[in-house]
């Protein structure tokens, strides 16, 4: 956590610098207002505060290891007994998960990628039902949630139901 604080601190300082630069570039007086009514005032103050927190975070990660020891101790999860028959593990379809699905990093990247494709490429360019069905199907298949046929049925059902309920029922125009 110490290491991540160092990098987060750095990122936070960069973000704050961006906002400080942006607020200073706005007009600071015009007809009808002086500095107290200027559009850049609030973002400037906020960005300066954000920068300060970033600096504290970076400094803390380098100079105060004791703080992290205490923090880690207080955040340790309560011990849970393992032998427990009220829950069971999910069975991936098709036996063992392929190796790449066992890495947390790849799983996260895959979820992000799938959602990004749906958000930025499928929605708005294709008919809503088609876009949604393709996304749901891809998601289930990639993560071995169900067989081909089942996946197809679920995907089309989701697309059609959402479309029917919202576009026709609730009167919301879908993309």
């Amino acid at each position: 956590m110490q290491k991540s604080d160092w990098w987060c601190g750095l990122a936070i300082i960069l973000i704050s610098l961006f906002f400080i630069w942006g607020s200073l570039a706005m007009p600071w007086s015009d007809k009808g207002f002086d500095w107290s009514g200027a559009p850049g005032l609030t973002p400037l103050v906020l960005a300066i505060f954000l920068g300060i927190t970033g600096i504290i975070l970076m400094v803390r990660s380098r100079t105060n290891p004791k703080f992290y020891e205490q923090l880690e101790k207080s955040m340790a999860p309560p011990v849970v007994e393992e032998d427990d028959d009220s829950i069971e593990e999910e069975e991936p379809v098709g036996g063992e998960l392929p190796a790449f699905l066992k890495s947390e990093k790849i799983r996260v990247a895959l979820v992000i990628l799938l959602c990004a494709i749906y958000t930025f490429i499928l929605l708005g360019r294709f008919h809503y039902i088609a876009a949604t069905a393709v996304f749901v199907a891809a998601f289930i298949l990639v993560f071995r949630g169900a067989g081909w046929l089942q996946t197809g049925i679920i995907a089309v059902l989701v697309g059609v139901c959402v479309w029917l309920v919202f576009q026709q029922g609730f009167g919301v125009f879908l993309p």
Binding site: H127, A130, A133, G152, V156, W163
Partner: peptide, 14 residues
């Protein structure tokens, strides 16, 4: 056949 039916449904609505 099922897959083809689904495709037809989607195209139909479109």
């Amino acid at each position: 056949i099922l897959l083809a039916l689904m495709v037809i449904c989607i195209l139909g609505i479109t």
